[in-house]
């Protein structure tokens, strides 16, 4: 069982990392910092609903650390870590309440949590509270990106049930 868990976690982390690196190559569509699709969150949500919250934490931590090294933006590690932690905590709590067909709701709250975490980190690091002005825009973007990644995760979980993973 240990080997199975190890393999599952490694496979999911590798998938998340590849999605993360590919997404990092796509230029930002807006001039507002911090807005991106966050497609690798699909894998985190998928892991949470299939192999469990514990392994999902491992997948997230591996992806954030290796992703930062791979894209070479150490500065963004602080923001990624702050956003990722809050997002994961929110998702892990909501996962207890929402079934698989409602993953998109969990995902939206996760995306909003991620953006709030990022903003909080940016405010603390720079000591400039004006960054909060970006919060409404980031919440709106979180609703849209969260819906998209959530639905992607939802379809993946539906089609590849617990046993196939």
């Amino acid at each position: 069982m240990r080997t199975r868990k190890l393999a599952e976690t490694a496979l999911l982390a590798a998938t998340a990392l590849i999605i993360y690196i590919v997404e990092a190559q796509i230029p930002s569509l807006t001039n507002i910092p911090g807005i991106k699709l966050g497609l690798s969150n699909t894998v985190t949500l998928f892991a949470m609903y299939t192999v469990g919250t514990g392994q999902a934490v491992c997948v997230l931590v591996i992806r954030v650390l290796l992703g930062t090294f791979a894209t070479g933006q150490v500065m963004s590690l602080i923001f990624s870590a702050a956003g990722g932690t809050i997002s994961f905590a929110v998702c892990a709590l909501l996962k207890r309440v929402f079934p698989i067909r409602m993953i998109w709701v969990v995902s939206i709250f996760g995306a909003i949590g991620h953006n709030i975490g990022q903003i909080a980190a940016a405010v603390l690091v720079t000591g400039t509270w004006e960054i909060i002005y970006y919060l409404p825009v980031l919440i709106i973007s979180g609703v849209f990106t969260g819906t998209f990644t959530g639905l992607a995760a939802q379809f993946a979980v539906k089609r590849m049930g617990k046993n196939d993973c």
Partner: peptide, 9 residues
């Protein structure tokens, strides 16, 4: 919105 450069604070 204000102009913000995070890397250079």
């Amino acid at each position: 919105t204000p102009i913000i450069c995070l890397p250079n604070r």
